[in-house]
Design a protein around this nucleic acid. Sequence first.
DNA 1: TCCCAGGACTACT
DNA 2: AGTAGTCCTGGG
Length: 289
Amino acid sequence: MSEFDIKDNTLQLHVHNFSLERSCTCGQAFRWVKRDNGSFCCVIGKELVSVSQHRDTLCISPCSDTDATKYVTYFDLDRDYNAIEDKMLADAVLKKCIPYASGIRVFAQEPFETLISFIISANNNIKRISTTIERLCKACGEKMTAKDGTEYYLFPTAEALKNMPLTSLRELGLGYRDEYIKSTAECIAEGFPLESLRDMPYTQAKKELCKLRGVGGKVADCVLLFSLGHGRAFPMDVWMKRAVSSMFFEGKEPKNAELCELLDGFGDDAGRIQQYIFHFARETGLKNE
DNA sequence: TCCCAGGACTACT
DNA sequence: AGTAGTCCTGGG
């Protein structure tokens, strides 16, 4: 495991080629908040944690003695992203993405929170997704108080969401997604084996996820990549469609088989490479393609 | 006022 | 199997 140190309830993790800012704001997670002092806050597990980066050191607080592995896993610190970038450097197209996205890590988030969050993300923008999720947490997530007195809310359990009246959900600004969320929360509360999708082949796991209401191919891929460890998952939103068409298919939309061939070439790093392409597309607007 | 935003559902060929 | 219209909401 990567090097770490704990003092004064602060965990210090050694990182390399890591960008906290890019990783927290790239759209994979919605509860990270940037504070004036440059640190980022989020509720992870049941803790409200503050994270800051100083060159190659990540400082996380508060922390207990046994939290190191938890955050190494969350921030994906044991993976060799240099090896991924080396692979991309060998490809003339992928090479161009690196300067725009280097340092992004794919976080390992909690499956249920990720599932509900990305159902909300459908036909929606990041700002509204974030505010809606915070309202949802406040409405039916457990209220917690940190040692310094700060109050915060956990992401709601499936049980709590299931018991919310549709009208109350609608008042939170979920729009037509309210019934998707209620229905999916019901399925999870009644035993839909979300965790078991981790060990299932990618294609089968995706098929299972798509049985849930409000979950189509794109949302399923987000859940598989961002919370269930499926590196093959390659979320295709409108930006990615534009990017993939212009970068790999001379501006034309690829047929399904052509796309599969491309993604097979990316192998188990497809999802992480997706993050590089996505960031490149957003920052350049694909103007030079 | 109209149109769209990091999709999914439904009802059609 | 593939495609058009519709869906709540906030902002340009």
